[in-house]
């Protein structure tokens, strides 16, 4: 470490008195979370599972500063892909996990199609592209993606509360206009579930290989350390 920074650190550190602890408030919030868990347990176990996993996701997002918006923005803006690589890793793990659940639930036969009926399988077409471009541009200028603004509301960003309400407004308007888009684009688009075309084991292996390839591509790009578009 450089000497100048060390000196500056010492100098600045001396100018501020000891910080107060927020841990007691955190404890109160934990008690609140447990209380809501107990309450939801009486309504339905399904809801209580959602609650507890949500808390865990929230903690993880905040602690690891996981930001989907940055994972797409940083490669373009500053040429760094460490977040993108982490997300690709998460995608590989989820792929394998979902397939494992599929097999354990259907006992090896593919007739149940757990992922296809319960998972996120939807029509693909021009509407996907339009939606994704709107979403991608929106998340960069609003400073947070869907999981990001939820996490930052917890961190105390008043701006992200505004984003939340704007997001809700946009989503509701989109729902309202849905009939129009459905008639123009969506109803003509196919729903493509990849294991319908190649058997599930091949689809799994293929997907993992593609994700691994993207991982190494991202790694190479990061090492090139380019600063584009500035």
């Amino acid at each position: 470490m450089s000497k100048a920074i060390e000196e500056l650190k010492l100098k600045r550190q001396g100018q501020f008195k000891k910080r107060s602890s927020q841990v007691p408030c955190g404890m109160i919030c934990i008690v609140l979370a447990v209380a809501i868990y107990a309450l939801s347990l009486q309504i339905s176990t399904n809801h209580s599972t959602f609650w507890i996993i949500g808390i865990l996701i929230g903690v993880t997002l905040q602690r690891s500063k996981f930001c989907f918006s940055a994972s797409f923005r940083d490669p373009v803006l500053v040429g760094s892909t460490s977040l993108l690589k982490a997300i690709i890793l998460a995608l590989i793990i989820s792929t394998i996990g979902f397939v494992a659940i599929e097999y354990s639930n259907s006992g090896g036969s593919e007739s149940l199609d757990w992922i296809k009926t319960m998972g996120q399988v939807h029509p693909v077409g021009i509407h996907t592209a339009i939606g994704a471009i709107l979403f991608g541009a929106g998340m960069v200028i609003a400073g947070g993606c869907a999981s990001g603004f939820l996490m930052r509301m917890g961190e105390g960003f008043l701006l992200q509360i505004v984003v939340f309400f704007a997001f809700m407004m946009g989503a509701v308007i989109g729902t309202w206009h849905f009939e129009f888009w459905d008639k123009v684009l969506i109803s003509n688009s196919p729903t493509i579930f990849i294991p319908d075309y190649v058997a599930l084991p091949f689809a799994t292996i293929g997907q993992v290989i593609i994700l691994l390839f993207l991982y190494f591509l991202a790694d190479w790009y990061d090492k090139k350390n380019s600063i584009m578009s500035m």
Binding site: L134, G138, M139
Partner: peptide, 17 residues
């Protein structure tokens, strides 16, 4: 920009599921 970005994101999600 936060308002604009939020509405864009929200509307986009309905198009792209």
């Amino acid at each position: 920009f936060a308002l604009l970005g939020g509405v864009m994101m929200g509307y986009g999600t309905r198009l792209s599921f």
